[in-house]
Write a protein that binds this DNA or RNA. Structure first.
Lengths: 240, 240
DNA sequence: CGAATAGTGTCTATAAGACATTATACT
DNA sequence: AGTATAATGTCTTATAGACACTATTCG
């Protein structure tokens, strides 16, 4: 099989996951406390090496998602984010990591007493601000992941991936506000998201709140690209 | 160095380049005729293996760009596109390829008699339509590259990377028309691009054409993200 | 002058943003 | 009734798209 490749350089391949969710109205990222060197005890993205040479990369990402977290995979959004391979990023050798971005609805804390016991949801803002240090080049990866999510919120239906199967428009608005870090007018938001064809569809049922008028429930409309897009209030920052 | 990695699976890493340009008002991609097996004689993206285990991936992309083509690297746009690693994509073994997207202004044909003699600019549309077959999974990569370029034209200044240092607004419009595959109103386009702050700036000089009024020359304004974006006429197709 | 291309002006339909108002629940 | 939240309506201003017109070159 490897007949003609005998003198080519090879690298070790890992998969890292940037799993974003909303908790307490705040954007959070799943981090695990490392149990082995290097960076033992430090926080890092969940991930790991390919299981064997023939394992597919996307499959490995789904496997890690299952192993390192107790999340329900079925309805989880997953896309490739980028590949990080600067020499020296891992002291053990030439390790190249393919990062994936996953979006999860609000879920219970990772169950204690399992493989995922050392996993916890940390504020993404703290990592971006460098108040919460993370191992390897994982801050770079998280920066890219959050930027990707912010951008995709504008012209795709990614926001629905942060929500449960059914959700209210107010909940959807919280997603936009938390990820973009802005506050939006509820009336204009309500009108806007409804007039984007295929973005969300009403289920017909309602959700009763502790107080106030019950809210109509919606679910994702199946359309992935939004036109017109939801424009984000001026952002004199970051890339595309 | 590799002390703890001895039993991890490793993969061979290559870099592939999707180099796009405009020729004869048409979007084209640089393809090379393969000189060795597998797929000898077939068309494929320029690219190749890492030189040595410690070579940086982005550096390898630039090196391949230099080696396989005679392009002037200085003013060339380059970004990572994605990583393609499905087992079986390369019959020689587990080869994972990191694809890069490059955008070049209109240039002379790759010089005959050099390393790049077997390289030629092929219509991207023919590859997308499957009229022009390419080796490996390179069609998938080209599809993703063109989609990325189409999308980035909307909200970044990527279009200027298709142009020379100075260009006319009509030339810039040709970029949008060729990449998007639409035709645009010159008057509205002219007004629109000029009112996006930092997109293009007038140089003060003009270019005399064979006939007609001389056109003002512009250069890229340094702004990478466009707000407001240039909206593409309805596209009931592809992803984001 | 006429042809060709560049650049400007104007009008209209539509969308965005600010904000008032009505509706429906709970205590 | 009073309060809290959801949903709808209205107004103003900005933008998008269609298209008429003026400007500058060449032959």
């Amino acid at each position: 099989m490897h007949n003609e490749l005998w003198q080519r350089p090879s690298v070790y391949l890992t998969v890292d996951l940037v799993i974003l969710t909303l908790r307490a109205g705040e954007l959070r990222v799943l981090l695990v406390e490392r149990g082995t060197e290097p960076h033992e005890g430090a926080l890092a993205l969940p991930g790991g090496f390919l299981n064997h040479t023939e394992e597919d990369i996307a499959m490995a990402a789904r496997r890690e998602l299952r192993e390192e977290t107790n999340l329900d995979l079925s309805s989880l959004y997953l896309e490739q984010l980028g590949t990080y391979g600067i020499p020296g990023r891992d002291p053990r050798g030439r390790v190249v990591s393919v990062a994936y971005l996953a979006i999860a609805p609000e879920l219970p804390d990772p169950t204690a007493g399992t493989d995922a016991a050392k996993a916890s949801w940390r504020p993404a803002g703290a990592v971006l601000d460098d108040r919460l240090p993370v191992a390897f080049d994982h801050r770079d990866i998280i920066v890219d992941g959050v930027a990707r999510a912010r951008s995709k919120l504008e012209h795709t239906a990614l926001a629905t991936a942060f929500c449960d199967v059914t959700f209210t428009i107010a909940e959807l608005q919280q997603v936009y506000e938390a990820v973009w870090g802005v506050s939006l007018d509820p009336r204009n938001f309500y009108r806007k998201v409804q007039q984007v064809p295929g973005f969300i569809v009403a289920t017909g049922s309602e959700r009763r709140q502790p107080r106030g008028r019950p809210a109509r429930l919606f679910r994702a409309g199946g359309q992935t690209v939004l036109s017109p897009p939801l424009t984000r209030p001026d952002h004199t920052d970051e890339e595309a």
